[in-house]
């Protein structure tokens, strides 16, 4: 459903991203991995249209992103930013309700959807608290609920871009959040591209890994194919030990 062709992003004559070909299908969860400065955030920003590519095309459901109608695109492409600056005292549930901006829902339907997605993201218990008083992890989950509400009227399979969704969460919440995302892929046909840092989390949840290094997509494929100890050594500069759990999944330590 998402196809990237010959993508080249430059800023001030400096190449920051080069993706000859990449694609994903509905139901797939892609983990974007790579060291700092590899171009992971640039990739997300380019796909969602915040940055424009100097060359190449990105197609969503067979149609170039440039030709999507603004509001229709909003119903099919959701972005969870790493951190949101909001200095006005909205309640958490009001922030989530803003996700309904591109949708055609009446007030009762919005309230219903807000509750549904806040419960799914484990944020309903502080629906009436001020967003500005929440912790970083809580804010991120509220923002996730907002983005999921935004995608709730998609006619085609929606694409969800997550920029380090687990960075501010504690361990339990990281897994809860990734489980939620995983189930959206499996049950609702979402396609997800998520920047992750933990290689084992990527192995556990992602269907595929895109490995970026210095702006180049140097490997893509299933996690065990891509995340070999020698690749990790080459890119991150440390030699991991490889274990296998009882399900035969690999663990890098």
């Amino acid at each position: 459903m998402l196809t990237i062709e010959n993508l080249l992003v430059k800023q001030e004559h400096h190449q920051i991203l080069n993706l000859p070909a990449a694609s994903l299908v509905s139901g797939e969860l892609i983990a974007v991995l790579g060291p700092n400065g590899a171009g992971k955030s640039s990739l997300i920003k380019t796909i969602c249209g915040e940055w424009s590519a100097s060359q190449g095309q990105i197609y969503l459901h067979g149609k170039s992103l440039e030709y999507w109608h603004r509001q229709r695109l909003a119903k099919h492409l959701g972005v969870l930013p790493q951190a949101s600056q909001l200095s006005f005292p909205f309640k958490a549930q009001e922030v989530v309700a803003i996700g309904a901006t591109p949708l055609s829902l009446n007030i009762r339907e919005i309230n219903h959807a807000v509750q549904k997605w806040m419960q799914a993201t484990d944020t309903w218990q502080f629906a009436d608290r001020l967003y500005t008083s929440l912790s970083g992890g809580e804010r991120q989950r509220v923002q996730l609920a907002r983005v999921l509400l935004q995608l709730s009227q998609a006619e085609l399979a929606p694409l969800l871009l997550l920029d380090e969704p687990t960075s501010a969460q504690d361990l339990g919440q990281q897994h809860q959040l990734l489980n939620l995302v995983k189930s959206l892929c499996q049950e609702n046909g979402f396609a997800v591209i998520s920047i992750l840092h933990d290689l084992n989390q990527a192995s556990r949840y992602a269907d595929k890994v895109w490995l970026l290094h210095q702006g180049e997509l140097i490997a893509q494929g299933s996690p065990p194919q891509v995340l070999k100890p020698e690749t990790v050594m080459k890119i991150w500069g440390y030699q991991p030990e490889l274990f296998f759990n009882r399900h035969g999944q690999q663990i890098l330590v």
Binding site: L73, K75, L77, P81, Q85, L86, T101
Partner: peptide, 20 residues
């Protein structure tokens, strides 16, 4: 007003919500 509310989240966020 709805666009202004979305705008408070940030410019990028407002753009992703389909606002010009």
């Amino acid at each position: 007003a709805p666009a202004l509310n979305a705008f408070l989240l940030g410019e990028a966020e407002a753009r992703h919500l389909g606002i010009n």
